[in-house]
Write a protein that binds this DNA or RNA. Structure first.
Length: 156
DNA sequence: GCCAACGTTGGC
DNA sequence: GCCAACGTTGGC
């Protein structure tokens, strides 16, 4: 499968792009996903070196704040086994883990492209992120949408 | 804090 | 398998 592009949401009060930049290798284990569709994207469709748009959600300035890439295959999310974690899942076992995730490495902090700016771009009207009622924390981005976003990034 | 929209759970 | 009730997401 050719390289794909993804948009991944993170809440900056949990893990901001600056938090990730401060981590070893600027890499974060994308734990805590508890939605099957988002999990399945990571388990079944993500490939090494896929491009990731790093998005801040549930915050005063929601939007794209950086670029990243997928740097691991999917593996079991340790937080599902930890009773003290808010992501603990009592139905998950080491033999049959429920939740998997990849590791993501920041490649570039970019300017902020706010939700409004994305919405105001007609060429992005089909973006899954912008679909009415979308709540998925991981959404695919088409090659055409990626091209438009790269263009936006090159503007001031 | 509100609330629309969606996903999950569990009784039947 | 249906679907009501409940929980979560996330922008505003």
């Amino acid at each position: 499968m050719p390289q794909q592009i993804w948009l991944m949401k993170s809440e900056p009060n949990e893990v901001s792009i600056d938090d990730v930049l401060a981590m070893p290798n600027q890499t974060v284990a994308w734990t805590g996903v508890r939605n099957y569709q988002a999990r399945n994207f990571m388990m079944r469709e993500m490939k090494l070196n896929d491009i990731v748009l790093f998005y801040h959600s549930s915050c005063p300035q929601p939007g794209i704040v950086g670029l990243a890439k997928v740097v691991s295959a999917a593996y079991p999310d340790e937080t599902q086994f930890d009773p003290t974690s808010k992501y603990f899942d009592i139905k998950a076992t080491a033999e049959k883990p429920r939740w998997f995730h990849v590791d993501v490495q920041i490649t570039q902090k970019t300017r902020w492209i706010g939700l409004n700016e994305l919405r105001n771009e007609p060429l992005l009207s089909g973006m899954r992120l912008l679909a009415k009622g979308n709540r998925l924390s991981i959404t695919p981005v088409s090659v055409d949408e990626w091209r438009v976003i790269k263009h936006l990034l090159n503007k001031s």
